[in-house]
Design a protein around this nucleic acid. Sequence first.
DNA 1: ACCTGAACACCGTTCAAGT
DNA 2: ACCTGAACACCGTTCAAGT
Lengths: 194, 194
Amino acid sequence: MDMARPKPRDDYHHGDLRRTLVRRALAVLERDGAEALSLRALARAAAVSHAAPYNHFADKEALLAAVAAEGFRRFATAMTDAAATAPAEPLAAIGAAYVAFAYAHPALFRLMFGPALARADSGSELAEAAQAAYAVLVQTLRGDPTRAGALADDGLAAWALVHGLATLLIDGALPGGEPGALVARVLRRVRIGP
Amino acid sequence: MDMARPKPRDDYHHGDLRRTLVRRALAVLERDGAEALSLRALARAAAVSHAAPYNHFADKEALLAAVAAEGFRRFATAMTDAAATAPAEPLAAIGAAYVAFAYAHPALFRLMFGPALARADSGSELAEAAQAAYAVLVQTLRGDPTRAGALADDGLAAWALVHGLATLLIDGALPGGEPGALVARVLRRVRIGP
DNA sequence: ACCTGAACACCGTTCAAGT
DNA sequence: ACCTGAACACCGTTCAAGT
């Protein structure tokens, strides 16, 4: 007889709703921004009742935290890939990847670094994912990994610089035009160290 | 007979509702954050019907834009004051004031640099106020004012650095403790220039 | 274990009507 | 010119009830 691979049921509305909701939320974020994100609309799009999401998330903030965590995971792999292709100039490579991610996914980037992150407990999925992304940044900027949890001032300076560029860019506060060239030019004017 | 100074009417609900709403919104922002801001609650607090605000603002975003503009005005004077007291080290002084403002008013700071700013038309009150605050920053960092509207790369680097520190701080992404000392330490590691 | 439907207390926005 | 009250189309969240 057939293996017990769970077949999709006729009345389509389950599968794994949790993943469906997160995936759909990411799509809404890209297309219409954060203010278009509603639990009820998400449920509607998944052809499920408006109370169904509460079987998988305590409240709306929990869903947003899951989305932000997924964002941090993608962010981390984007930085890893970028650093691998240009190991000679780590600050330039990581800075370009950092800003490019923010530019490509402004609403997601804002959600990732929004007030939910500040409220996240240290054990949570969101905190873990953010921590992992940060580890990529630090590790490619300097040879040694994070030590003792305390962030070296130089790493912090580099982080603040690229983060500031990214947020100012998606706020429309930077002069228009191709952002990659601008970021490269600005980063070239900065030296970090003793 | 008495001068025609407009006396407050018996049924309290007018005066100038516009200013009352903005002032009240700032207070809510400080106390309960952005998600607690509702037009209806604001109207209730001002003892006015929930439709009354629409006589002064086209929609909620217009009210938020007015609040953000007021934030930029206070931000500008905070930076001006700080730069005046420590003219020897402009980057340190402006950086400290920049970060201190964000730390003292996180919700307002987030609103100021939120998506509303990216959407603001260039003639609007919000865009003007943001531009004025930016002029203070550039003017104290370098001797000469903005030239030709194009931002020098060095000024941009300095701005991105302090802005990044400020946003990372209010996101809870920086190590705890007294932020002033951390910011001063980090800024001391950075050199900007040719 | 997961989902539904009704219910509650909110929203933002519009609009006729009042003064 | 500014405000009110009713109305509409939404929300997030809870909860009994179903399978």
